[in-house]
Design a binder for these strands. Structure first.
Lengths: 232, 232
DNA sequence: GGGTCTGGCATAACAGCGTTATGTAAAAAA
DNA sequence: TTTTTTACATAACGCTGTTATGCCAGACCC
């Protein structure tokens, strides 16, 4: 009754090769033929395992969100929620700059020809935001933020940092204002705009810079297995 | 000695058709064969006039920046520079939502397969920001903004609004926080973060909403001629 | 006005792409 | 062992951007 099962390692190796190709040579290097050639198989492997290039790309997007969550999970909860929040911002930017092409596929609309995210995919991405919402709640209850709705706060922070990262990846933020300067100013400005005082916001932003180098920067998220925890 | 000159109208019609195709059917509908077919010529017209698809797309990007400038040019200078600034934000978002695919090509990195902007193209885009810098200067001299450097202020505003618009176009901002709610809150928050008081910022944001519908919303920027002011 | 020469544009081909129809063989169930 | 089901290989289809080739329109020179 039950037929031949697909090799579990095939899925993960295909995704690994595709992710490496995207990271090393950019989106134009992503092709079914190229991936299959480097995997030593035919292009049909992409179709039996993922239903086409879209499915494979979608799997890479999921992995991208997993990497982002890995960075977020290393942000500790301290008694300075605003510092925690700015640290999330630093982690978010760090993840995007570490995986620029993958980030572009995740949030860049139709970054890859013929591929677009489904509503379910975006819901996956939005779920990652729940960590930020939780931290925003702590900022509000601590009296540091004026606005009461944590979800609105999270969206404001997300959109602002995302925009900076996007323009930075697009090489729009260079001389004389490089992205670092704008980012630091943006962090402080956002906290003040949400209700924190200039003094405490500046302190929190500064402290999170030190924490970033210890807690987040060197995190090397392991590539998660794709639906099949099999590994060799 | 001097050879046959290319038909000046060919360039503009090709760009017009391409822009219409991009706006109506999205990036996947953009192909040299399709454009040539709708123009009644062969694909070679794309190569003699633009050197290839990249050149044509680049020309469309220039037109995109021109449209954005057209919206900006309709923002009046009042004695409330913060209201003017938020109105620029509304104009920026309005332009992006009116030309979503074009905006994606302008700022979405490699939104179209095989196309990427050059440093010169980005300089063109950054030039548009000079209007914002000028307005930021007025905000600072009026004592509404704390931060002294107008260019830094302009970059903070640009990145924040761009990020919101990008996620909105990517359909990441829907239930329960739609983009409108986040946008209004973001405008106020940004002004406060830059030094304005909550009260005056709220007033300016509110007043710019009314001005938007009168000064900006119905602007229909005419498609500028491409390097050749010839027209028929 | 005729000659000349440069380059716009058409035709057709090439290499690549994602995808699919077809055939084969491997693996799981009976 | 037989049966069944599907993973995978091969080859083709239609599409893409691009280019080699050739024709001829049109601007200069005489």
């Amino acid at each position: 009754m039950s037929p031949r099962r697909s090799n579990p390692r095939t899925r993960s190796t295909l995704v690994d090769i595709a992710a490496g190709l995207l990271a090393d040579e950019g989106p134009d290097a992503l092709s079914a033929r190229r991936i299959a050639a480097e995997a030593g198989s035919s292009t049909m492997a992409v179709y039996t395992n993922f239903g086409g290039m879209s499915g494979l790309v979608r799997q890479m997007v999921y992995e991208g969100f997993a990497r982002m969550e890995a960075y977020f999970s290393h942000v500790l909860h301290t008694d300075d929620p605003v510092a925690d929040m700015t640290l999330f911002g630093r982690a978010y930017r760090h993840n995007a700059l570490t995986n620029p092409h993958l980030y572009a596929v995740m949030f860049g609309g139709a970054s890859l020809a013929g591929f677009s995210l489904t509503a379910e995919d975006r819901q996956y991405g939005r779920f990652t935001l729940s960590t930020i919402v939780e931290c925003a709640t702590r900022c509000v209850t601590a009296g540091r933020f004026r606005v009461g709705d944590a979800e609105l706060v999270a969206h404001q922070l997300w959109t602002a940092i995302h925009g900076l990262v996007t323009l930075e990846l697009g090489e729009y933020l260079i001389d004389p204002w490089n992205a670092d300067v704008v980012f630091e100013a943006q962090l402080t400005g956002l906290m003040v705009g949400l209700g924190d005082t200039v003094e405490s916001a500046t302190r929190s932003v500064t402290s999170s810079l030190g924490r970033f180098k210890e807690e987040v920067e060197d995190v090397r998220p392991l590539i998660p297995a794709q639906d099949d925890p099999e590994d060799g």
